Amino acid sequence: MSSSRLALWLGALAVTGAAVVGFAAPGPPAQARAGRTLDWVAVKKADTEPRTVTLGASWVTYLELHEARNGKPGRMIGDGSARCGAVLVTKEGPVTQCQRVLRLHDGSLALSAMIDRFGSGPYTGSSAVVGGTGIYATAAGDAEITLDGDLVRFRIHLDG
């Protein structure tokens, strides 16, 4: 993990006040190779998003990452974080930009997205896979992210 990513990660934990005690990352996910589609579900464990999102508001989220089983959390495969900000607020709702890092035992994936959060949700949007570490070091592709309460669904398509 680069020192800047480590600093971002540690900063996110400090801001949320989250403490991860005794986290042991399980083995690699079933689908980790390039040219594959990864179906993962994350569960929010810490979140500083304000109840009412205003222009310029920012927040961080800590996630437990799981393989998806029928759209629900299955086997835990790692953790993740998101750093988000409201770049526009309309009468329909906010437009948010988020940088996400999904950390697994054998590498991390970095995602970047802008998602409209109009109405009551769930909210779905596209994300770019902007890089990774470990077995994901050359990762590129795209993802569909669905925000549904305390669940975040990731359908990640890695270029082959």
Rank of each mutant, 00 (worst) to 15 (best):
P29E: 05
T61Q: 10
A143R: 01
G35M: 00
V15I: 09
Y123I: 02
S2W: 06
V152N: 05
R103N: 14
A30M: 11
L102H: 03
T61M: 08
V43I: 15
G107W: 03
Y123E: 05
M1I: 08
A25D: 08
L109S: 04
T52R: 12
G107S: 02
P122T: 07
L63F: 14
M114Y: 09
V41I: 15
P122A: 07
G56K: 05
G149W: 06
R155H: 12
V129S: 03
S3P: 11
G80Q: 02
V129W: 02
L151D: 14
G22R: 01
E67M: 08
E64I: 04
G132P: 01
G119D: 06
G160A: 10
V15T: 08
A34L: 09
V41A: 09
R36F: 04
I145S: 01
E92P: 01
T146E: 07
V101D: 07
A140D: 09
G17P: 00
K45E: 12
M76A: 15
V53F: 06
T90C: 11
Q97R: 12
R83P: 00
L10P: 00
D148C: 05
V129C: 03
R69T: 13
A12I: 07
G160I: 00
S108N: 08
Q97S: 10
F118R: 08
S126T: 13
W9D: 11
A14T: 10
V152W: 09
D116V: 10
Q31V: 14
T54Q: 12
R33T: 13
I156H: 05
G134D: 01
W59T: 08
G121Y: 00
A110S: 14
G17K: 00
R33F: 10
F23A: 13
S120C: 00
A34W: 03
W9F: 13
G107Q: 03
G107N: 05
G78L: 10
P29R: 02
D150P: 07
T96D: 13
S2F: 11
A32G: 14
W59Y: 10
V87I: 15
V87L: 15
R117W: 12
I115C: 10
P73W: 01
A14R: 14
P29W: 00
T61N: 04
L104V: 06
G85E: 14
